[in-house]
C-alpha cells in the first residue's frame, strides 16, 4: 500500500492573520500543518499498518515555512517528505496549486505507482475544500471526497460520505484521490522517538523545473482570481454585556425586541 498525503501549512488559528498586497501574511513561528490534514495522515498510517506493508509520503507546496507541515507529518509517522518550494508558485489559485501538486504526485507515481492520494477535507485557513476535486480532475484519477469512512481492497476504494440530504456510498478503482473528514478517525499524537527522527529526516526539495511545470502556468499571473481589496472588519460596536442578577432574561428579551429580532 503506497499512499501520498498532501498537507498544507496554515497559520496557528489563534494567531492574528492578515493580508498584505492581496496575499495572506503569516510567519514561520506561528503555524504548522493544517489540523484537518492530521486526519488524512492518520488514515494513511492506519491503511499501511493494516496492510502490513507500504509507505506514506507527505507532500506540501509553499514557501520556506511550509516545511513545518511535512515535518509534522513525519512526526506522526510518514516515511518520506517532499516540499515543492518555488517562488513562482506564490499567489496560485486552487487550480494552479492543484497543477503543481499533481505534477509532484505524478513524479512519485511514475517511479513507483501509488494506490492513493489522501487529503484533508479543507484547509482551516481558507476552507474552500475545492482542492481535492481539482486534484482528482488534474490527475484524471478517481475522486472519493468527504469520506466519513474508507475501505480499501481489491484494487478499489469505497467511502461513505455524509451530504445534507443523504449518506452516499461511493466506490471507485485505484488510484484514487480521497478527501477525509474529521469524523473518519482520531489522529494520533506524535511520539518522542518520531519527533527526534523527524528533525533529522531528509525533506526532498523540488522546484517547478524539477517537475517540468512551466512557471508561467501557475502563480499569481495565471490565477483566475485576484484579491483587489482586503480590510479588517471593524469590531462589533456598542457591545453590551450584563451579569444576570435576576433580570438577565428580561434584559435579553428587551434587546431582541428593540432590535426587531423577536
Amino acid at each position: 500500500m503506497r499512499i501520498l498525503v498532501t498537507v498544507k501549512f496554515t497559520p496557528d488559528l489563534q494567531s492574528q492573520r492578515s493580508f498584505t498586497d492581496g496575499t495572506v501574511t503569516r510567519t514561520a513561528d506561528d503555524g504548522s500543518m493544517n489540523e484537518l490534514d492530521e486526519n488524512a495522515v492518520e488514515a494513511a498510517l492506519q491503511l499501511v499498518e493494516a496492510a502490513g506493508e507500504g509507505e506514506v509520503y507527505a507532500l506540501t507546496v509553499g514557501g520556506a515555512d511550509a516545511v513545518a507541515a511535512v515535518r509534522k507529518a513525519l512526526q506522526l509517522g510518514a516515511n518520506h517528505a517532499i516540499h515543492v518550494n518555488d517562488d513562482a508558485v506564490a499567489g496560485s489559485d486552487v487550480f494552479g496549486t492543484a497543477a503543481v501538486l499533481a505534477a509532484a504526485i505524478r513524479k512519485v507515481h511514475d517511479e513507483n505507482p501509488l494506490d492513493l492520494v489522501i487529503t484533508g477535507m479543507a484547509a482551516l485557513d481558507g476552507l474552500t475544500s475545492m482542492l481535492p476535486t481539482a486534484l482528482a480532475a488534474e490527475l484524471d484519477w478517481s475522486q472519493l471526497t468527504l469520506a466519513s469512512s474508507l475501505e480499501v481492497g481489491d484494487g478499489s476504494a469505497t467511502i461513505v460520505r455524509h451530504l445534507p440530504d443523504a449518506h452516499e456510498t461511493v466506490t471507485a478503482p485505484l488510484p484514487a484521490v480521497v478527501s477525509v473528514t474529521d469524523e473518519l478517525n482520531k489522529p494520533r499524537y506524535p511520539n518522542f522517538k518520531l519527533i527526534m527522527a523527524a528533525r533529522k529526516a531528509e525533506v526532498v526539495q523540488w522546484s517547478l523545473a524539477d517537475l517540468g511545470v512551466d512557471a508561467a502556468t501557475v502563480g499569481a499571473g495565471a490565477s483566475r482570481t485576484t484579491v483587489v481589496d482586503a480590510s479588517p472588519r471593524p469590531p462589533r460596536a456598542d457591545q453590551q454585556i450584563v451579569t444576570d442578577t435576576g433580570e438577565g432574561g428580561n434584559a435579553l428579551a428587551a434587546f431582541l425586541i428593540e432590535k426587531g429580532l423577536a
Binding site: I241, D244, G249, N250, L252
Partner: peptide, 14 residues
Amino acid sequence: FGVVGSLFDVLPQA
C-alpha cells in the same frame, strides 16, 4: 449582547 449567567435562569425568563 451578552448575559453572564446560567442559561437555565436566563432563557425561561427571556
